Amino acid sequence: TEKEKEVKRLAKERGLSPDQVRELAQRAGFSPDQAKQIADEFA
């Protein structure tokens, strides 16, 4: 999704850790499970 792409782009730009990616995703409105899946891509 657009929102997911945006979260991943920000995460890459900022060099976020997987935990930070998960927090960012949840703040963007993703469920905890979705946020974990997104964060796992950065693990």
Rank of each mutant, 00 (worst) to 15 (best):
E4W: 15
K36V: 08
K8P: 01
V21G: 00
L16A: 04
K36Y: 10
D33N: 10
Q26E: 14
P32T: 09
E23G: 06
D19I: 10
L16I: 03
L16G: 02
R9N: 06
G15K: 09
A11I: 03
D40K: 11
P32C: 14
K8H: 07
Q37I: 13
Q26F: 09
P18T: 09
E2S: 11
R27L: 13
E13H: 08
Q34T: 06
R14N: 11
K3Q: 10
A28D: 02
Q34N: 05
V21P: 00
Q34F: 06
I38T: 02
I38G: 01
A35Q: 03
E41G: 06
Q26T: 11
A43N: 07
A43I: 11
I38E: 02
K8Y: 07
A11Y: 04
A28K: 09
P18M: 11
F42V: 11
F30N: 00
V21I: 10
L24E: 04
K3T: 09
L10K: 06
L24A: 04
K12R: 15
D33V: 11
A25V: 02
S31V: 03
K36P: 01
D19V: 09
P32A: 13
E41I: 06
L16N: 02
L24K: 00
G15P: 00
V21R: 01
A28L: 15
K12L: 09
V21D: 00
K3G: 08
F42W: 13
R27K: 12
G29T: 01
Q20Y: 03
Q34S: 05
Q37M: 11
K12P: 01
S31I: 03
K5Y: 10
E4D: 05
E23S: 09
G15D: 07
A35V: 04
A43G: 08
A39E: 03
Q37K: 15
S31R: 06
K36G: 07
F42N: 03
A25M: 04
V7Y: 04
R27P: 00
L16Y: 12
E41C: 05
A43Y: 12
G15C: 09
V21T: 06
F42S: 04
K36Q: 14
Q26D: 03
K12N: 07
G29W: 01
R14E: 06
R14G: 09
L16F: 06
G15W: 05
K3N: 07
L16H: 03
A39P: 02
V7M: 06
K36L: 10
L10V: 13
A39M: 06
E23M: 14
F42H: 04
A25G: 02
Q20W: 04
A11M: 02
K12E: 06
A11H: 00
S31E: 05
L16V: 02
E13G: 05
V21Y: 02
A39K: 02
R22E: 11
V21E: 00
E4K: 15
K3F: 08
K5T: 11
D33W: 09
K5D: 14
A25R: 02
Q20M: 06
A35R: 01
L10Y: 09
Q34L: 07
S31H: 05
V21W: 03
D33M: 13
A43M: 12
K5S: 11
D19Y: 07
I38V: 04
D33T: 14
E4Q: 11
L16W: 05
K12S: 08
Q37R: 15
K3E: 07
F30K: 00
T1D: 13
E6N: 08
L10F: 06
D33K: 14
P32S: 11
E4T: 12
D33G: 10
R27M: 11
E4R: 15
K3I: 11
R9I: 05
P32Y: 14
R27C: 08
A11W: 05
S31K: 05
A35L: 02
Q37V: 12
R9A: 06
K8N: 04
K8D: 02
T1F: 14
S17P: 04
L10E: 08
R14P: 02
V7D: 01
A28H: 14
E2W: 15
R14W: 15
R14I: 06
F30D: 00
R22M: 14
Q37F: 07
Q26I: 15
A39F: 03
K5L: 12
F30A: 02
A25H: 00
E41K: 06
D19F: 08
A39H: 01
F30W: 04
V21F: 03
K5P: 02
E41P: 03
Q26C: 13
E4C: 11
A35M: 02
Q20L: 05
F42K: 02
E2C: 13
S17D: 10
E6W: 15
A25P: 00
D19S: 12
K5E: 13
A35I: 04
R14F: 14
G29N: 02
E13A: 13
V7H: 02
K8A: 04
L24V: 04
K12A: 10
L10G: 03
F42E: 03
V7E: 01
T1Q: 13
A25Y: 02
Q20F: 04
E41H: 05
Q20A: 09
L24H: 03
E41T: 08
D40R: 13
R9Y: 03
A28C: 14
A28M: 15
D40H: 13
P32R: 08
K12D: 04
I38L: 09
E2T: 10
L10D: 04
P18S: 09
I38S: 01
Q34M: 10
Q20T: 03
L24R: 01
T1C: 14
V7C: 08
E2G: 09
A11T: 01
E2A: 10
G15Q: 09
K36F: 09
G15N: 12
K8T: 05
V7I: 15
P32Q: 12
R27E: 10
R27Y: 06
Q26H: 07
Q34Y: 09
E2Q: 11
A11Q: 01
G15Y: 04
V21C: 10
D40V: 09
I38Y: 03
Q26K: 10
P18A: 13
L24F: 07
K8I: 14
G15I: 03
S17W: 06
S31D: 08
T1W: 15
K3L: 15
D19E: 14
P32I: 11
F42M: 09
